[in-house]
Amino acid sequence: MATAELGAARLGPSRAMRRVVGAVTFLLPLLCLFLLWPVVTTAFDVNPRVFPGVGMVWAALVESVRDGSLFAHIGASLGRVLVGTALGILVAVPLGIAMGVSSGISTFLTPLFRFFSVLAGIAWIPIATLWFGYGFGAITFVIFNAVFFIVTYNTLLGVSAIPMRLRHAAASLGAGRRAMLTEVLLPGALPNIVTGIRTGLGFAWRGLIAAEMIATNVGLGYMLFVARDFYRTEVIVLGMIVIGALWLLIDRLLLAPLERATIERWGLVTRS
């Protein structure tokens, strides 16, 4: 016990140190690219119609912040992601658990999931616009799709990775069907579910941008697509930077810590 506490004390500062080093090594290449950009555009005198200078993009940022259009696009995109993801998780987790518990259900549904996970995301855009029209419905459906299949599959994996002895232990301590679900299956599968959400959201984010180029009149994808019609490369590049940066923020500051928290806290589920 004493050695364990000593170990933890020794790990403390070095862990914080690793975080800082990790952040720096992650940001450094991005910073280099950013610094290289004005050097290249001035050295080769690049035509702004081909690629904009830093100043132009900065001006576009200031303008779109001032007139509120950037936040309107970001808000629309995030809203769709939020709704699509929430719906996807709500349907996927119960289904994944049902599949994990019943081998009959999972045997029957697995081939379907193999097939549809290939199609998940942007392949659904054309038919989604026929079903839901252009706008919120079609795009949210595409996101739902991307999240749904991956989260279902990961939930299934998570449930089937729970050792049978844990279910036995719960049953012999008096757990009924409902307690088995809330006390064993859900928490046991949670690390996999969170991993599934993280992966699914990655696909959903890409699908979102693609869908917004086709099926709407507001959103980050739409912002890029319209700017092209007016040869406004600075708006296109601004949009690309926002899309990438926003995803990195969501992934690094929200999803990765969540994943770490569930997995590290409990040790690996399979370990004990």
Binding site: P163, L166, A169, A170, G188, L190, W266, S272
Partner: peptide, 8 residues
């Protein structure tokens, strides 16, 4: 193999 719930 103990079978303790690792999340509790």
């Amino acid at each position: 193999s103990f079978a303790l719930f690792p999340w509790k």
